[in-house]
């Protein structure tokens, strides 16, 4: 089973990181899921693939009743992001899923119907969470052509989807990045290959640099915290992307 760890808590505003499943088959890429809750309201970021649904559901249930999750935020359309959607809908048929308008007619192949999806326009949008507010931040072409990150100004956390992802070896899989220089080696090949647009990358880096971010939470790998957030943005800015081989 995965572990759900509280990474931010202030009053009734919380971030839960659902990570590291020791029973995960090695043919499945490891993923991180994040649950943001404010009072009774909760939104699950990139709920993950169908195969890992039991591990995610079970880990979340240790902290909150998973049936109370009213919203899903899908950064993009990939199977490791949102192919579990049909299963989440089993437990709450009224669940809504925020995702890029570009994928609104593709992702229903995983589940859901016309009522399920809230398409996000290219420029992004505010996402209400109880009486708090989150923001869908454009990250198009990083890597998907319709791609969003989720920013929480109150917690100063940016859920960054595949940006910041690292494929970590089992003995270096801490939840928080401990040594940026060692860690980033496991992120380099991923970013060179998966991030296809240098212009989109620079746009995102400028946008992220202007935001107040204490934690940058990717969908794979470890969380960048404090000074490592700035280090990551600068590293990414200088990285040559769209490379077939390193």
């Amino acid at each position: 089973m995965k572990t759900a760890t509280t990474i931010y808590s202030a009053g009734d505003h919380q971030w839960l990181a659902v990570t590291r499943d020791p029973q995960r088959p090695d043919y499945l890429i490891d993923t991180n899921e994040y649950l943001v809750s404010h009072g009774e309201a909760a939104i699950l970021c990139d709920p993950g693939g169908m195969e890992i649904f039991p591990a995610v559901f079970s880990a979340i249930s240790e902290h909150v009743d998973p049936r109370n999750i009213q919203h899903i935020f899908a950064s993009h359309q990939d199977p490791d992001i949102v192919s579990s959607l049909a299963l989440w809908l089993e437990f709450n048929p009224r669940l809504k899923c925020y995702l890029s308008w570009l994928w609104a007619s593709f992702v229903p192949h995983f589940g859901g119907d016309r009522e399920t999806f809230i398409p996000i326009p290219d420029a992004g949008m505010k996402i209400p969470l109880g009486n708090a507010s989150l923001e869908a931040v454009p990250a198009h072409f990083l890597h998907s052509s319709g791609n969003f990150h989720l920013y929480d100004a109150q917690a100063r956390i940016l859920f960054s989807g595949d940006v910041g992802a690292a494929l970590l070896p089992p003995d270096e899989d801490d939840l928080i990045v401990k040594n940026f220089d060692t860690h980033i080696r496991h992120a380099e090949a991923f970013h060179r290959r998966w991030m296809g647009s240098d212009r989109a990358k620079r746009d995102w880096c400028e946008r992220a640099a202007a935001m107040q971010i204490d934690m940058l939470c990717p969908q794979h790998g470890a969380i960048y915290q404090g000074e490592d957030v700035r280090r990551f943005i600068e590293w990414f800015h200088d990285l040559e992307v769209g490379q077939l081989r390193v």
């Binding site: 039991p54 559901f57 079970s58 249930s61 240790e62 009743d65």
Partner: peptide, 11 residues
Amino acid sequence: SRLKAAGVARG
């Protein structure tokens, strides 16, 4: 079935 086997604290 795997979810049942893993067990859930709530739900």
